[in-house]
Amino acid sequence: MLSIKNLHAKIEDNQILNGLNLEVKPGEVHAIMGPNGSGKSTLASVLAGREEFEVTDGTVEYLGKDLLELAPEERAREGVFLAFQYPVEIPGVSTINFMKTAVNQVREARGQQPLDAVSFLGLMKEKMKLVEIDQSLLNRSLNEGFSGGEKKRNEIFQMAMLEPKLAILDETDSGLDIDALRIVANGVNKLRDKNKAIIVVTHYQRLLEYIVPDFVHVLYKGKIVKSGTKELALELEAKGYDWIKDEVAVV
């Protein structure tokens, strides 16, 4: 589904990704861990198509297409979803209105008829239940005055609405207390299926107790330096990142 080869990327003059390789198949959940500044969020941004990041080398193939050639909105319409670490506020625009625009533009790009008000409402009600979000929140201006937990839950609600094939969760656990974390993780788990892949970018192992990954990768200095299963995450939790740094230094 997603094949990243030798990816190099920089922002302004800072080289951040230095030859990253990653293979993701449908149905898989990959966790990307690593110390601060290792390039985790850059990877998420590059995959979503943020312009400030310049890809200097390497390829990213997504469902047989060259992902890097696609504009950000095209990527979204092809099923790439990014749950933002810091969801953006848009005053005066309700989540409902925002999602209606998004869902219908995605449908249009796929050659489908736009949803009428009734069908949209039906879809919304169904997804609201899935991620345990209240309609009153969705009537409010997008992310404006939302608590950290509400913002993240809203991201997962949007993910549910857009039914992506590849979802990238960028530090979705940051700023969440344990209850909010559980609700968000439950939402994500309900969206897991054999056709969808999820990349979970996180600093801590905590989230992975709820969203259990098939693979865990350690990103360090812009490269994946170690891959393993969920046990690797536990080891990182116990020992910190220093031993990885030492290992890399030895090599």
Binding site: E51, A76, P87
Partner: peptide, 10 residues
């Protein structure tokens, strides 16, 4: 804000 919208397919 623009990027957030783009990322949702808008």
């Amino acid at each position: 804000q623009i990027f957030y919208c783009l990322q949702r397919g808008i």
